[in-house]
């Protein structure tokens, strides 16, 4: 707000004072929100770090089991078992609210199946296929968990960034400008009052 645009009136002063109060309140609330989001972010970061570690571990295990299954059963049998899967996991995407930030809440059903439900023939396969399938089911579960946490983290980061920008704007631009405008109006009003007083004195002196 440029000072030249400011109207040095009492009503403007009152309005600016109200805006300053509002901005200061907003600043305080946004600062608290930013701190709260950062705390929440670090909490989730810890979980995400563990989940990511577990995901990498499960990925390595699944890859190892795949290599073992190819070794023991051969590529054709492994592919046959993989193609036998008829039921895909049901993934329900809901949302939850963390301090005003909408984050995903992913629920997955039937990721883990019993050997009778997996679709491959039990009598023509060995337990290596069971172990490989189990390793991949665990990997899918870890991916889902990781996806939820990492998306939450990404959304929280975006929100922290936005809140930080707003806090900075209020702290370094809006509030100082309003304060400057308030001071300017005050100064102008005081000056106008002094001029008026002087004018009155001059009129009084001339008439007497």
């Amino acid at each position: 707000m440029a000072l030249k645009d400011v109207k040095p009136t009492r009503s403007e002063l009152i309005a600016i004072k109200k805006r300053i109060k509002l901005s200061q309140n907003g600043y305080k609330i946004l600062k608290m929100k930013r701190d709260g989001l950062i705390m929440e972010f670090f909490k989730i970061l810890e979980q995400a770090r563990d989940t990511r570690g577990a995901l990498l571990e499960k990925h390595m295990r699944a890859q190892e089991m795949m290599a073992i299954a190819n070794t023991v059963e051969g590529a054709v049998a492994v592919k046959a078992a993989a193609f036998s899967v008829t039921k895909t996991p049901d993934i329900t995407l809901k949302s939850k609210n963390i301090m005003g930030v909408v984050v995903p809440d992913i629920e997955a059903d039937s990721v883990r199946k019993g050997i009778a439900e997996r679709g491959y023939g039990v009598l023509g396969t060995t337990p290596v296929i069971d172990e490989t399938t189990k390793a991949f089911e665990e990997l899918v579960e870890a991916i889902i968990e990781s996806a939820e946490l990492e998306t939450t983290m990404k959304r929280l980061l975006d929100e922290i960034e936005g809140t930080k920008r707003r806090v900075n704007a209020l702290e370094f631009k809006v509030i100082p400008e309003l304060t400057e405008a308030r001071d300017f109006i005050k100064m102008r009003l005081d000056e106008m009052e002094r001029e008026e007083l002087f004018r009155l004195k001059r009129v009084k002196a001339r008439s007497s």
Binding site: A80, S84, V85, G119, Y120, G121, V122, L123
Partner: peptide, 14 residues
């Protein structure tokens, strides 16, 4: 149609 021969496999062995 399903691409899965598991039931067929189990029944063949039985």
């Amino acid at each position: 149609s399903s691409g899965s021969f598991s039931q067929m496999e189990n029944d063949l062995y039985k």
